[in-house]
């Protein structure tokens, strides 16, 4: 009876000891964990120990490697009839048709540095059989002036009788002026100053042979 009591008492102590030990161990783990976390920033609180081995590379921010200051837009320029020039005269296609409905006039001209159109009415105007139409057309064309972006030879072919392209302008002899920086694009704009002629009747890159 006494022995049984002693055994039971011993077993009871053992149970208390094991239970208390487990509890204390868990509490100790929690306390240690809490203490370890106290000094850490929030981001690092949950990082596992192996993660600390890796180092994060801070990406360089824009502006550290260099600076780019965006400049102004480089606008293209247009080689075209300069309507601001004084003395510019407009050709009326209907009038030409009224004068000579079969007129066939070719003009070879030079565009100077300032954009003026220069030609000799004797040597540079080719109009066999249509002299009066040639003279009238040449007198108007002579007043034309262009924006000063290209120089060289320009040829016109006024083919009044044509049902297709009534005006052909050969611009292959034109070159951009040397003073214009290469980064500026020079485009061709309106190369004629004529009323009563639609755009589809004009070929501005055609070949004109005398």
């Amino acid at each position: 009876m006494n022995l049984n009591y002693a055994q039971q008492k011993k077993s009871s102590y053992l149970q208390w000891f094991i239970g208390g030990g487990v509890t204390l161990a868990i509490i100790s783990v929690l306390v240690i964990r809490t203490l370890m976390m106290q000094g850490l920033p929030y981001d690092e609180m949950f990082l596992s120990s192996y993660a600390l081995v890796d180092s994060l590379e801070i990406p360089p921010r824009p502006g550290i490697a260099g600076i780019i200051i965006t400049g102004p837009k480089i606008e293209p320029v247009y080689f075209k009839i300069d309507v601001q020039r004084a003395g510019l005269r407009k050709l009326d296609w209907d009038e030409i048709v009224a004068w000579d409905r079969t007129a066939d006039v070719k003009i070879r001209a030079t565009i100077t540095d300032d954009g003026s159109l220069v030609f000799d009415e004797v040597t540079d105007v080719y109009c066999p059989g249509h002299t009066s139409a040639g003279r009238i057309i040449a007198s108007v064309v002579k007043t034309w002036a262009y924006t000063p972006y290209k120089t060289g030879t320009i040829r016109f072919w006024f083919n009044v009788a044509s049902t297709g392209q009534k005006l052909t302008i050969d611009v292959r002899g034109l070159k951009r002026k040397p003073g214009i920086p290469g980064k500026i694009d020079v485009f061709n704009g309106l190369l004629y100053y004529i009323d009563g002629l639609s755009r589809r009747d004009v070929n501005s890159n055609g070949i004109v042979r005398f």
């Binding site: 949950f46 360089p60 824009p62 550290i64």
Partner: peptide, 21 residues
């Protein structure tokens, strides 16, 4: 959660010169 966050593709600035007017 932070591990999931670590897998997120967060756009980071590129190593380019700062472009400004």
């Amino acid at each position: 959660e932070p591990r999931e966050e670590m897998r997120l593709a967060v756009p980071t600035p590129e190593n380019k010169p700062g472009r400004a007017q």
